[in-house]
Design a protein around this nucleic acid. Sequence first.
DNA 1: TCTCATGATTAGGCAGCCCTAATTCGGGAT
DNA 2: ATCCCGAATTAGGGCTGCCTAATCATGAGA
Lengths: 228, 228
Amino acid sequence: MDATTAMESLTRSVEDYLKAIYRLSPEGRPASTSDIAHLLELSAPSVSGMVKRLSELGLLEHIPYKGVQLTDSGRRAALRMVRRHRLIEAYLVQFLGYPWDAVHVEAERLEHAVSDTLVERMAAALGHPAVDPHGDPIPEADGSIREPACTPLSELDVGDTVEILRVDEREPERLRYLASLGLIPGAVVRVEDRQPFGGPVTVEAAGARQVLGQELAHVVLCGAEGVR
Amino acid sequence: MDATTAMESLTRSVEDYLKAIYRLSPEGRPASTSDIAHLLELSAPSVSGMVKRLSELGLLEHIPYKGVQLTDSGRRAALRMVRRHRLIEAYLVQFLGYPWDAVHVEAERLEHAVSDTLVERMAAALGHPAVDPHGDPIPEADGSIREPACTPLSELDVGDTVEILRVDEREPERLRYLASLGLIPGAVVRVEDRQPFGGPVTVEAAGARQVLGQELAHVVLCGAEGVR
DNA sequence: TCTCATGATTAGGCAGCCCTAATTCGGGAT
DNA sequence: ATCCCGAATTAGGGCTGCCTAATCATGAGA
């Protein structure tokens, strides 16, 4: 079974599994059945079954009771979906006036329906952007991706002045809240205070002081190097 | 079972059936099982089965061995898909540089994936167009549609000068050929000659004489009234 | 080394949608 | 009035992809 040939005809479901597994194995570490099930909101047996099918398709490597890893063709297919997703998000914001909190849901459906041609036309219209509206890097068409080093706001030191590079969050409510505080990619913030034991972080952003709980501070990813 | 409530959650397959049945019953005349099967490239038993389900869902009326008709909610759902399809086609041509022969296939997949919001944003970006790139009228969001009277090029008389309103064709090859002859919506043509018994039609279009077989002449739909 | 909780897998089912083969219906021709 | 052909339907299967319930492997701790 040649997975590369089958690439064109992957099921919506299969594409979602591959994307999920990609997301769950940052450094190629294996993903567990239950993590996949949780991320996709499916039962563990469903995942077990699909994992078996996908490994027979050559899209992933499965060591029973251990975990799952994407093969090369699996990762290629996953990255293709990630590229689509992020380009669609960027396009919706840039050309159709979508707010950044609404694009994820829309892209989640569209990514399975667009053709390669359409994706590339959108990329061209956007001027081949490097990142999506949340600052997530967009994989190239050849499957390469550069993940810039970044640090969660929650781990910076008082006095640090940094640029926000990414916001790793998909819930619209939270995204709107963060935007209302000026905490969006490209913004420069200074850490004014940070309480210990998971306490809140106080930052200065857009000329105002903002206090941010641990949970939100954790998804705001900042440039590793200080600004200025 | 309330079909209106279910509207949001229709299957891709169901949406295709409804669109096909809508296409096959111009004046509300019933569509036959085999016509539907032929249009969707499915077997007759598959259609029989789906027809049963759809009539149980209240989307259509089925008289066994007679035919099938859309109910109000069925037609509403079908027109919603038609609106999506045609707006997507228009958008792809206008904003993403698609040629008119390539949009059908793309729209066929996208129409199932876009949200109402996205459709309306595309409509707004286009300035709420009345027709798609092939001249087909775009139903309003409320489900109303105005089909302008038109006559196939194959049925006009020698000497008639008319505007091309629609081109009822989806095969890319044929669409490209017609465009290369200048036979696109908006073009004005004069019938120079017409041979009997399904013979070719000669027209003057874009300052050149073109001879057109019956098959193609049949899909080029012209304004009922002559021009000038 | 043995036990046992946790997580993974197998067993068994169901719904959506498609198929081929077999049967039944309807209406025109005899 | 009957026959018969083509169209439609029913019968019976397959595949995907999901579920719950039951079973089983693994590794941490006694």
